[in-house]
Simulated scan of single mutants.
Amino acid sequence: MPTSTDGSTGVGEDHTRRRLGLVRDAHVAVDRVACTGHGLCAQLLAGVTLDEWGYPIIGDDRVVGEDGRDLADTAVRLCPARALYLR
Rank of each mutant, 00 (worst) to 15 (best):
A34C: 09
G12H: 12
E52I: 05
T9W: 03
A26C: 12
H15A: 14
T16Q: 13
H38S: 10
A75Y: 05
D70A: 14
Y55L: 07
V23E: 02
V28R: 02
G65P: 02
D70W: 09
G37H: 12
L71H: 01
E52R: 03
L84N: 01
V48P: 00
C41N: 07
E66S: 10
I58N: 03
P2A: 14
V63Q: 00
G10V: 03
T5Y: 13
S8W: 06
L78I: 09
D14A: 15
I57L: 10
D51G: 00
D60H: 13
R69E: 09
R24Q: 14
R19Q: 15
L86H: 02
V64P: 01
C79F: 04
D67H: 11
A46L: 06
D73M: 09
Y55T: 13
C79S: 03
R69T: 07
E13R: 15
G68Q: 04
A29P: 01
V11N: 08
D70H: 09
R17I: 06
D70C: 04
W53E: 14
P80Y: 03
D14L: 15
R18G: 06
P80W: 05
R19S: 12
A26F: 10
S4N: 14
Y85P: 00
T16C: 09
D14R: 12
P80T: 08
G47W: 03
T3F: 10
D73S: 08
A26D: 14
P80Q: 08
Q43D: 08
P56Y: 01
D73Q: 06
Y55A: 05
